[in-house]
Design a protein around this nucleic acid. Structure first.
Length: 916
RNA sequence: GCCGCCGUGGCGGAAUUGGUAGACGCUGCGGACUUAAAAUCCGUUGACCUCACGGUCGUGCCGGUUCGAUCCCGGCCGGCGGCACCA
């Protein structure tokens, strides 16, 4: 087919040429501290994309959305004198590569390399101004080395409760702590607990990952295993508090806060009579003196159980107690007559999948243990049940049930006919019987010394009472759990740890032996052995006569937790990042100049602007913050947060308004769009679709629209001659002999004045719109300007050159090509004189003098409705405007028979006549 | 169920501080150029009434504040996202 004829301008020829030149001449190389051409006096701007996982499917149109946005901002900041760090890399470890390798028998390194090559080609075909010299790959041995080094920092640290910071465990050694005691506080520790084991994947998964893999059809079950954990819970409070000053969307902050799930309340200690005992005649036991945290056996017939509650003020309303089926005390307190039903129930719960346990929450189940607990506040004997609506993983795995004021307890109490005692009056004035359960605040009743107190005061009073009487303590509880950090995979960073064959103790691999890479293996299929496939690498495991190697590997999150740091100093062999690079790119070096960019003034976070999808709102962004804080505490980083400003791009839907998916056949391939319309058109369309953060559907007709716009820009500069060749447009007017300048000349003719006005309005608006990430309106304004240029009979070339300069960040290929082709004609100096590319030139200033208007249009309203329009000089006095408005024919018609009460004049906008 | 976000023409969207609703683009319609088509260019395109001047309605629905509300407040309806027995 006549493919060439369809191309409205020869993007297929010049786009690859420019991409090649940018690469070969390293136009977008970013010098940093230590480089000969580094200028430390320049302000820095660090703009970051969420690096992709290089899947076999290649780039998706969702990728270039965020990448184009950052590219525009990066190029714009560069033109404004910033030293811009805008890097790209690969999050290349991961289960899909390993699964694919198992299926095809090819080593994951080979497929990963092939995928990266494809991704790099696709990104380079879009003309992004990355500094490819800083490319980072998480599977690269030089990168793995420092991931493992950072893990060893965590391993060798503990959380000092007094300072609220991480510190080396050597401090504790000096204080005479034993190895076992130290292992109890390490930020990286080994723990045996029920985990999410996937038999067909042959690995454990983090809680956060379960859904993703289940959705892909894999099974996940609970199974107790020994796993490496990271003590992120120690940072729960700081992860909440230090979120506050960040320039992140409120919705994402909220998501993180909810995920961390802070609850204030109290722990309350109940005593439970031993198995078989019937409720004793009221004997409030006051002699328990053990720590409330310690649910230990006190005597042969007496146990203590601690519960967590956010409503200690309702303690008088606790009518029964529930333990999680997995609670360690269940077996001990269960009476002989209930033993069979309790054991059967526990078994039934264990076989339930997580899904069932969640789905069936409408229908509560449980069985009594036969034991009774003593309510510490009134000595009442209350029955102890077990039920799976109480979970072992949160709080203490036991609750006091207050059915009158908790929906779940109420439902349970109703089903099993347990007593309900109201202790909060939520509508004192109304007087009627309140509908229970009532979970709101109110006034305490039936509550002894709390009666009459408002909920907030009652809580405080009860906590004070509990603490005075050693029956409980104030407690802050978090939903966040420690991070399950080990995986039973081949394609991940091995843990740099050793096990002593004799003592069974673990130890760090010496730093000098990093990186520790996986051994070459033929077969890394899941073995069913929960130690993972590396267990089969017998030579590799045998470290020495004394030590064997740890066989677990790290999760994919490990590499993405710190990649933004490595970009600052990617080839450093001495450290994960040099001090100088860290300080400069974090904006904390003394050389850093105060900058007018809001995000650059405070140095809370290293990266000035981070753009990516919402899918990482909690996991990656929480993990990276945690690692950053540990490294900060240990003195390795000067900032306390990684990402100062965060923006989430909205999902791009298919043309049918549904999420793109292979099964729906609505997936748009970026390569096809580039082939048919060019890279500039794809970039521009993705920015023109709508606001960056919004979810929006793809429309191929819209791509054609922006392609037409680019063609119009091209035809402002060029026209086709008889032979069909593109030659300089006859409308372009060089200012003969006058020296070329970066700013347009003043108005030389009346016809130029309107063009100058629209150009300078455009320069102003596009700059402002880039700053506020409103790319769609910036493009809209550039279309307005182009339409004016197209309509003009004659156009001074300087105006076009200024326009190309501001369009360059959006459509870099087209603009460079036009600029180059115009050199040496129509008043443009030859390339030999001004060799700079547009991308290397400064952003043009706009001139206020061209923006002033001779006349303005005012709207005249009568009672808020537009009745007339008025064209006047901008400085027309108010009195005159009022008179003009009154005199207007149409206004008089609408005010006839009415009295004018008031005239409101909004300068430059409107006049509103209030009449009735 | 709880928390959060969003509802504007036939479609994507604009209106930046409460001040002309619908910029810009797509689609549709009419025209120019062409033997014809494509491409390009010009005009038009919220609904309704009117020959016209002009008028009425209109930003999910109902109400409020205001000279004036897409924007602020209260109550509903619908869609999307997150969490999901978190005590």
């Amino acid at each position: 087919m006549s493919d060439d004829r369809r191309k409205p301008f020869p993007f297929d020829v010049f786009e690859p040429q420019w991409q090649q030149r940018w690469l070969e001449e390293k136009i977008f190389r970013t010098p940093g501290p230590g480089d000969a051409d580094f200028d430390a006096s320049k302000p820095k701007y660090y703009i970051l994309d969420m690096f992709p996982y290089p899947s076999g499917a290649g780039l998706h149109v969702g990728h270039p959305e965020g990448y184009t946005a950052t590219d525009i901002i990066g190029r714009y900041k560069r033109m404004n004198g910033f030293n811009v760090l805008h890097p790209m890399g690969w999050d290349a470890f991961g289960l899909p590569a390993e699964q694919y390798a198992i299926k095809t028998g090819q080593h994951p390194r080979i497929t990963t390399e092939a995928n990266i090559t494809n991704f790099r080609r696709q990104l380079q075909a879009l003309g992004f101004a990355y500094d490819w010299d800083r490319e980072v790959n998480t599977t690269d041995p030089d990168y793995v080395r420092w991931t493992q080094w950072i893990f060893l920092q965590l391993y060798a640290s503990y959380f000092n409760e007094e300072t609220g910071k991480a510190a080396p465990v050597t401090e504790l050694e000096a204080q005479g702590w034993t190895p076992a005691q130290i292992d109890d506080v390490r930020l990286a520790y080994i723990h045996e607990a029920p985990v999410n084991w996937s038999p067909d994947l042959g690995t454990v998964l983090a809680n956060e990952e379960i859904e993703e893999w289940k959705a892909k059809g894999h099974t996940v079950e609970r199974r107790p295993l020994r796993q490496w954990m990271l003590r992120i819970t120690k940072y729960a409070q700081r992860l909440i508090d230090e979120l506050e000053p960040l320039d992140w969307p409120d919705s994402i902050k909220l998501l993180q806060r909810n995920w961390i799930g802070r609850s204030e309340g109290a722990e309350v200690v109940f005593t439970i009579g031993s198995a078989g005992l019937q409720p004793a005649s009221k004997t409030p036991s006051g002699e328990a003196a053990a720590s409330p945290d310690n649910q230990s056996l006190i005597t042969d017939n007496c146990h203590e159980v601690t519960v967590f509650t956010t409503r200690p003020d309702t303690l008088f309303g606790a009518t029964y107690m529930v333990l999680a089926p997995e609670h360690p005390l269940v077996a001990e307190i269960t009476s002989a007559e209930h033993k069979d039903t309790v054991e059967a129930y526990i078994k039934q719960c264990a076989s339930k999948s997580d899904l069932d346990r969640g789905d069936l929450n409408k229908n509560k189940s449980g069985v009594p243990t036969g034991a009774f607990a003593t309510n510490p506040v009134n000595g009442q004997q209350i029955p102890v049940w077990i039920a799976d609506y109480v979970m072992m993983g949160y709080g203490t795995g036991a609750i006091m049930a207050v059915p009158a004021h908790d929906e779940r307890d109420f439902e349970f109490a109703t089903k099993f006919e347990l007593p309900v005692v109201q202790v909060i009056d939520t509508n004192l004035d109304a007087g009627g019987t309140p509908t229970l359960p009532s979970t709101g605040h109110g006034t305490a009743i039936n509550s002894g010394f709390l009666d009459g107190l408002k909920t907030t005061d009652a809580k405080a009073r009860m906590i004070a009472w509990l603490e005075e009487n050693n029956k409980g303590t104030r407690k802050i509880q978090f939903k966040l759990r420690d991070w399950l950090f080990s995986r039973q995979r081949y394609w991940g960073e091995p843990f740099p740890l050793l096990w002593d064959r004799e003592t069974g103790l673990h130890a760090a691999l010496p730093e000098s032996e990093l990186p520790l890479l996986q051994p070459e293996m033929e077969d890394f299929k899941p073995t069913g052995d929960p130690r993972g496939p590396l267990v089969n690498a017998t030579d590799w495991i045998n470290y020495s006569d004394q030590y064997t190697r740890e066989t677990n590997t790290m999760p994919q999150w490990a590499g993405s937790c710190w990649y933004y740091l490595r970009y600052c100093d990617p080839r450093n062999e001495q450290r994960f990042i040099s001090k100088a690079a860290e300080h400069y790119w974090s904006g904390t070096s003394s050389l850093d100049h105060s900058s007018p960019i809001p995000g650059n003034q405070k140095s809370t976070g290293t990266v000035d602007l981070y753009i990516g999808g919402t899918e990482h709102a909690v996991l990656h962004l929480l993990y990276a913050r945690f690692w950053h804080k540990v490294l900060h505490d240990l003195g390795h980083l000067s900032t306390s947060e990684p990402f100062q400003r965060l923006v989430n791009q909205g999902l791009i839907l298919g043309e049918d308004g549904q999420k793109m998916s292979k099964s729906l056949g609505n997936v748009v391939n970026p390569d096809d769009v580039v082939d048919n319309y060019g890279a500039d058109a794809l970039r521009l369309y993705e920015m023109f679709m709508g606001p960056l953060e919004q979810v929006k559907p793809w429309q191929m007709k819209g791509v054609e629209g922006v392609s037409r716009f680019l063609a119009r820009v091209w035809r402002v500069a060029f026209e086709q001659n008889q032979e069909g060749e593109w030659v300089t447009s006859s409308k372009l007017q060089g200012n003969d002999g006058a020296p070329p300048s970066t700013t347009p000349p003043g108005a030389t003719a009346n016809s130029d004045k309107a063009l100058l006005k629209v150009l300078h309005e455009t320069i102003k608006k596009v700059g402002e719109d880039i700053e506020r990430l409103s790319f769609n309106t910036a493009i809209s304004q550039m279309m307005v300007c182009t339409n004016a240029f197209t309509a003009a009979e004659k156009l001074p070339t300087d105006l076009l050159l200024s326009f190309l300069q501001i369009l360059n960040p959006f459509a870099p290929h087209l603009t460079e090509e036009i600029n180059k082709r115009l050199q040496g004609s129509v008043g443009v100096p030859p390339a030999s004189q001004s060799g700079l590319l547009l991308s290397e030139k400064p952003w043009p200033p706009y001139d206020e003098q061209y923006l002033v208007q001779d006349t303005i249009e005012l709207v005249i309203q009568v009672n808020g409705k537009v009745r007339a329009k008025l064209t006047v000089a901008p400085d027309t006095p108010k009195e005159q405007l009022e008179q003009l408005a009154r005199d207007h024919e149409n206004v008089q018609q609408h005010t006839a028979g009415k009295t004018i009460r008031k005239i409101i004049v909004i300068p430059g906008r409107l006049i509103n006549i209030v009449a009735n």
